[in-house]
Amino acid sequence: MSILVIAEHDNKSLKGATLNTVAAAAKIGGEVHLLVAGSGCGDAAAQAAKVAGVGKVLQADAPHYDAQLAENIAALIVANAGGYSHILAPASTGGKNVMPRVAALLDVAQISDIISVESADTFVRPIYAGNALATVKSADAVKVITVRTTGFDPVAAEGGNAAIESLAAGPDLALSKLLGRELTKSERPELGAAGIIVSGGRGLGSSENYHKLLEPLADKLGAALGASRAAVDAGYVPNDYQVGQTGKIVAPQVYFAIGISGAIQHLAGMKDSKIIVAINKDPEAPIFQVADYGLVGDLFQLVPELTSAM
C-alpha cells in the first residue's frame, strides 16, 4: 500500500501544511510519496526529499504547473494515481480546489477535512461547523482525502533522504489561466501556522481601530492577525484573515479573541487552541464559555494596556 501526498509549496520552499499531511499519511500506514508539481520547483522538491518518513519524491516541473491551476494539477494527479491506495492533500484553499476534481475523475468520494485516522478506510471529520464529528468509512478503491492540519502534529522537516524522481508533465489543458495574484504582504507568521494569534471582531468598530489596536499587540507577541466573519463582512480586514467554519481553522498555543462575541461559526475555527483569551465588554458573550481567561471591559482601554504589559 502506497500513499501519495500532494505537497503544498511555492516552488522555492515547502509549506508547513505538507508536514501535517504527511503525518496523517503515516497514521494510515504504508510508503509515503510526495508529489511536487510546479515550475522551477527543484528547491521545493529538495526540501520534500528531507521530510521525515517520505519514501520518494515525484517532481513534475513544467510552466503550466506554475499557477497550480486545478484543471492541470488534477489531471496530473489522476494520470499518476495508479498503484496508490490513498491520495492526500492539506485542506487549504489549494487542496480544497484540486482534490474534489481528482476524486470525481477517479469516480470516488472525497473525504474532506479529516481530523483523525481510525483505520486505513475509516476517518473522523467534523460536520455542522464542528458541532458534530462523523466517523466515515469509505468503500472506494482509492481514498481521496483532504487533511485538517490542526488535527495532526507535523512530522520533522529534516531527517529524511528520499530519492527525487522526475515525472513526465501532462499536456497543458489551457482551460484557464492566471492573470495575477494580490497577496497580503506581511512580516507576521502565517495564520495557519502561527503559535500566537491576535484576532479581532465587530467590537473594534472600524478598520482603523482594528489596525491601531491589534497590530502593536501582534508585533509585541510575534503573533499572526485573525478576524471573525463579522469583522470581514464589515470590511475591517480582507477575507484571508477570517477564522471560522468557512475561513481558516487554527489551533495556536494562544488565541486572543478581542471584541469577538463567539458565534458558533467562529468557535468552529479556533476552539482547539491550547489557551483562549477573550476580551469583551459583554460578560454574557458566548466567547467566555470557551475562554480559559476572560477579561470583561472596554477593549479600547484594555488592549493598549495589555500591549504595554507584554
Partner: peptide, 14 residues
C-alpha cells in the same frame, strides 16, 4: 477573482 490563503488571485477561463 478568488479568495485564496494569503490573498486573492484572478483567473480567466473559457
Amino acid at each position: 477573482t478568488r479568495e485564496i490563503d494569503g490573498g486573492l488571485e484572478t483567473l480567466e477561463m473559457n
